[in-house]
């Protein structure tokens, strides 16, 4: 029993070492530090924009926050979660793309439907009521 599982352990170690390149990568010190530095910069910019009241336009500030946030999510995906198109034969990427589509439908759909609902549910005056068809 003991020798059996020991040899199994060795075989597994060999398998692990062999298949290392095919699995989700574990990253290197350099990639973690790169990701960290990029994240710090991409976090600092939106906080600076809002706390320092840098941009005059609210729309521009919100757009900047969203774009920088999206970039930072991609940075985390690559440098911390080690996403790539090859891990698990591409299935993690497939699952991610599927999830992103569902998330986009849920977010955009909710906002779109509720915006129209709010627009069409305006408080009606008696005059408007009278003129209804």
């Amino acid at each position: 029993m003991t020798t059996n599982s020991t040899s199994h352990e060795d075989a597994h170690e060999a398998h692990h070492a062999h298949s290392h390149g095919h699995e989700a990568g574990h990253g290197s010190f350099k990639s973690y530090v790169t990701g960290f530095i990029l994240s710090v910069i991409l976090t600092a910019i939106p906080f600076w924009l809002v706390m320092g009241d840098v941009l005059d336009s609210k729309v521009a500030t919100v757009a900047a926050i969203m774009i920088i946030g999206a970039i930072q999510i991609v940075v985390h995906m690559i440098y911390f979660l080690h996403m790539n198109t090859k891990s698990e034969g591409g299935w993690t990427m497939m699952a991610l793309i599927f999830t992103v589509i569902i998330v986009a439908i849920a977010l955009v759909g909710s906002l779109w439907v509720m915006h129209h609902l709010n627009t069409n549910m305006m408080v009606m005056s008696p005059e408007m009521m009278k003129n209804l068809p």
Binding site: H12, E23, S87, E88, A95, L96, T99, I102, V103, A106
Partner: peptide, 25 residues
């Protein structure tokens, strides 16, 4: 263990994370 290589756990856990992502969405 060798019938279920380590990779399948990673993929399964990734699918869990994606479903968790839907909760947050």
């Amino acid at each position: 263990e060798d019938h279920h290589p380590e990779g399948s756990t990673n993929l399964g856990f990734w699918l869990y994370l994606m479903s968790d992502c839907l909760i947050f969405a």
